[in-house]
């Protein structure tokens, strides 16, 4: 399974476009949003709420784009005969999917950490405020996002199809989930709908740590953590069932 993850990592790093989209675009976008939100509602002062909103919101939205691309690449491998070739290799069938899930988790974790470190350097985001809580929240967001990626791959028919509808779904989810603007600025109805997105729970969890001084013992933080784990488990389970069904169709 490690070999599958390493191969995916090499593939990502060998494609300049993918490196740009995965690591540099989130930094560029978070800078842009931080410059806008970081000055809102204050006169000459830095609005840390706006900075957190910009950095965390962008990081989660871009993480979803990354996992969607990982899901789409899975379908690409199927179309190009790679999946069949992997099935000929002496490794358990389930490892093929687990490998993708693990890679998606690592990528999202890495992406979030890079954007947060950049946030610390460029905008003074206090990433050492509660390290265990931040690590847990990064892990939970990675898990839920990876579930979203493999779920897209499992329900999609082709790489192009996934790429097309993933963009729409992510933009809608990020819009209502608080990645683009704070949820409390939305109407009540929208605030309720936003609870069905990975973005919302990820944002709430990171708000709790960065802005509300809440941590591992706080029930709000734990609620966000639990919901993200549930979302991840649900999506990963559905993806796994559909993946097995798809494999049976091949074999």
């Amino acid at each position: 399974m490690i070999k599958l993850v390493y191969k995916d990592f090499k593939l990502l790093m060998s494609n300049k476009r993918d490196v740009l989209l995965t690591f540099l675009l989130p930094i560029a976008l978070s800078t842009l949003f931080a410059l806008v939100f970081g000055r809102m509602g204050t006169e000459g002062q830095v609005n840390m709420g706006g900075i957190v909103q910009a950095i965390v919101g962008t990081a989660i939205m871009m993480a979803l784009f990354s996992v969607a691309e990982i899901g789409a690449s899975f379908l690409g491998e199927k179309e190009e005969g790679m999946l069949k070739k992997l099935l000929w290799a002496p490794l358990p069938k389930s490892h093929i999917l687990y490998g993708k899930i693990l890679f998606a988790n690592i990528m999202v974790g890495l992406q979030l950490l890079i954007v947060f470190i950049y946030g610390k350097i460029a905008f003074g985001l206090d990433i050492f405020i509660n390290v265990p809580a931040i690590i847990l929240m990064v892990t939970a967001v990675s898990y839920a996002s990876s579930g979203f990626g493999v779920f897209l791959a499992a329900i999609g028919r082709s790489r192009k199809q996934v790429q097309a509808y993933a963009t729409l779904i992510i933009l809608v989810m990020s819009g209502i989930g608080g990645s683009m603007m704070p949820v409390n600025m939305m109407p009540d109805f929208m605030q309720k709908v936003s609870m069905f997105s990975v973005n919302y729970w990820g944002m709430q969890g990171f708000y709790d740590v960065f802005l509300r001084d809440r941590g591992l013992t706080d029930h709000h933080f734990l609620q966000a953590l639990l919901v993200l784990i549930l979302i991840g488990t649900l999506l990963n389970t559905i993806a796994f069932i559909l993946f097995k069904k798809n494999l049976n169709a091949i074999t």
Binding site: K7, K10, L11, S14, N15, E80, G81, M82, K84, K85
Partner: peptide
């Protein structure tokens, strides 16, 4: 097994 498809990673 050598399949009909050229199952290789083009970027590698």
């Amino acid at each position: 097994v050598v399949s009909q498809e050229i199952a290789l990673y083009q970027e590698l």
